[in-house]
Design a protein around this nucleic acid. Structure first.
Length: 218
DNA sequence: GGCCAGGTGTAAA
DNA sequence: TTTACACATGGC
């Protein structure tokens, strides 16, 4: 593990009990529910995504392709409205439910396919891009490292690279695959707390002068 | 009031 | 292959 990754690990206090993270973190067993949670969290604050997810959960009980099919598009839109972009995402979720049923997608099937084939299949589904597909893969224990906006920013500052593929590969080289989900979440927390978009709090950062972007700040 | 939030799909250069 | 933009609510 690189020094950078170790320092992040030592610093970050993950608040896993909050917001959307626990859905993905703890309930990785239910593939479809995880996917719904991730779609709701796309470019959305955790609080808003969690509100939408809870609305859906309360209404459906267990979120499955079948239960999601059982409600109208209009009702779905109302339920997930707090997450924003609700018309677009309601359509995606409906289409995802249909695809899961038609293609008979199961966790076992995806695991058996392997990361590359499973990613390709998932990315062919509406509303599922590279990042969302990788979150699903890493939840299934397949080798993947999802790269979000925070991680991209941190990786750029560290000179790791700026392209999704390069950043993802670099972190996978630093980590055992069992720890990819954990570090994905830790880095996001690190980005929110310290290495922020607008004002990086370099003074509070444990990496300090060792960070390539420290120069000229503080 | 402006910026940002665990992106994706589409279109145009 | 890269860039721009729509999608949209809610917190700070």
């Amino acid at each position: 593990m690189s020094e950078f990754v170790e320092l992040v690990d030592r610093y970050v206090r993950l608040r896993l009990e909050e917001f959307i993270a626990p859905v993905v973190w703890r309930e990785g067993g239910n593939l479809f529910e995880t996917l719904v949670a991730v779609v709701l969290s796309q470019n959305t604050s955790d609080k808003n995504a969690f509100k939408a997810f809870q609305n859906l959960k309360k209404r459906l009980g267990s979120i499955t392709p079948e239960s999601l099919r059982g409600i109208s598009l209009g009702e779905l839109e109302e339920l997930i409205k707090p997450a924003g972009m609700y018309r677009q995402r309601a359509r995606y979720l409906k289409a995802l439910a249909d695809a899961f049923i038609t293609l008979e997608i199961t966790p076992e099937k995806l695991v058996k396919m392997g990361a590359d084939a499973a990613r390709k299949l998932l990315m062919g589904l509406p509303g599922v891009g590279r990042k969302t597909a990788d979150v699903v893969l890493v939840n299934l224990g397949l080798p993947a490292f999802p790269v979000d906006t925070h991680i991209t920013r941190i990786a750029k500052r560290w000179g790791v690279g700026s392209r999704y593929e390069d950043i993802s590969r670099w972190f996978m080289e630093q980590l055992q695959k069992e720890r990819c989900l954990e570090f994905h979440l830790k880095l996001i927390q690190f980005g929110r707390d310290i290495c922020k978009a607008r004002k990086p709090r370099c003074e509070e950062c444990p990496i300090g002068e060792r960070c390539p972007s420290f120069k000229g700040r503080g």
